[in-house]
Amino acid sequence: MGLDRREFLKVAGLAGLLGLGGKAAIDMFAPGELEASMETIPLTEGKRWAMVIDVHKIDETIIKKCVEACHREHNVPDLASKKEEIKWIWKEDYEHSFPERHHEYVGEDVEHGSFLLLCNHCSNPPCCRVCPTKATWQREDGIVMMDQHRCIGCRFCMAACPFGARSFNWGDPRRVLEDEKLKELNPGYPTNQDYPTRSKGVVEKCTFCAERLAKGQLPACVEAANTVKKDALVFGDLDEPDSNVRAVLRNHYTIRRKPELGTNPNVFYIV
């Protein structure tokens, strides 16, 4: 990251004044209630980013909002095909989120509850281990990042990910602009003019909104969820003992997906 908080504010402020792209940086100067909870840990300097999803607080509306916010932010198209599906964050039921925990007598609210799944940004990510070109790798702040410029499309990472978090561009995503049916499904695609689309033949996935963190903003899903219910999704630095995520983890019983595989996921669920 290279910049400390003070330096970042200086740069962001300068960029803001000069109108040089750092549009969103201004948000840092007028923190809402949400950002206030992050006061102690600037979003630009985490050591180990993590997310806690409170399953009691999220509902269909929030989930829909999160998914939409993410996919609009990152120009993720709906390709109307299970085979070629691309998703960064999505809804899943309990049985399929935690297949090894499921049993037939599980309580109704859990059984019918909805979970929000995304890349776990594992501390020990098998996807990065297997990538032959380091097109996917772990940043110093723990984010498992994708470099779409470098990916050769071998899909080894998809085989290696135990969480099904990765999607492949089986075709050119921009065909959405030509196909009438897809056009209708994706009004305004590409929805975010400031973010690239992808090209055919590369893998993509959630990046914990690295581009937003760099500007001092929370991930799009966290922001979207919190406009409906406070702390439904909590995002922060696990490495910081006083951080919001650490506090939430201290006070609630949480589970992670497939911890027995030793990948050490950084997305937690309060159930």
Binding site: M1, G2, L3, V11, L14, A15, L18, L20, G21, G22, W137, R139, D141, M145, D147, H149, Q193, D194, Y195, P196, A210, A214
Partner: peptide, 24 residues
């Protein structure tokens, strides 16, 4: 930008640019 997360570029003139093909 992508690999090191360094998103700002300081030109010789001291001007700071947000490193983005699309946005800058």
């Amino acid at each position: 930008v992508v690999r090191d997360g360094e998103r700002y570029y300081t030109a010789k003139s001291g001007k700071v640019f947000y490193k983005s093909l699309q946005m800058t």
